[in-house]
Amino acid sequence: MAEELQKVHLYYDDINKIRVIENNVLKETEDLKDTCKDYDTKIQDFGKIINALLEVLKELGDNVEKKKMAAIGSMNLLKSISKEREAEQAKLQAEINDKSMILEQLDSEYDALQILEATQMETIEYLTQIR
């Protein structure tokens, strides 16, 4: 009977259920199915891992970018500070120049006054001597 059925491509399996495909084929198919399932889960796991990796990398990238910006910022700040210092220095220098000019003026005025004082002392001395 089984042979007849086999002729019309029907088979019995181990538990005597009627089947359209051969037993070993069936087994292989099922094996394949299992393997595929297995593969599928593995792929999914892999995807998850990759995603996690990507996320981590992205985070890292963000962090790097942030740090980079901060570094550039502080670098600029440093530059601007040095520029500010230069400006400040120039300003102070100009002020020093101005003050020293005023000092020069006052100095020469002081000198003139000292000379005047000396002349007057001389005159006084001369006059007292005569007396």
């Binding site: 003026q105 006052l106 100095d107 020469s108 005025e109 003139a112 005047l116 002349t119």
Partner: peptide, 19 residues
């Protein structure tokens, strides 16, 4: 007799000339 002169650089010169 003392002349007060403003010099070119702005300082003042006191000069006893004809006391």
């Amino acid at each position: 007799g003392v002349a007060h002169i403003c010099r070119g650089n702005g300082s003042i010169l006191h000069l006893s000339i004809a006391a």
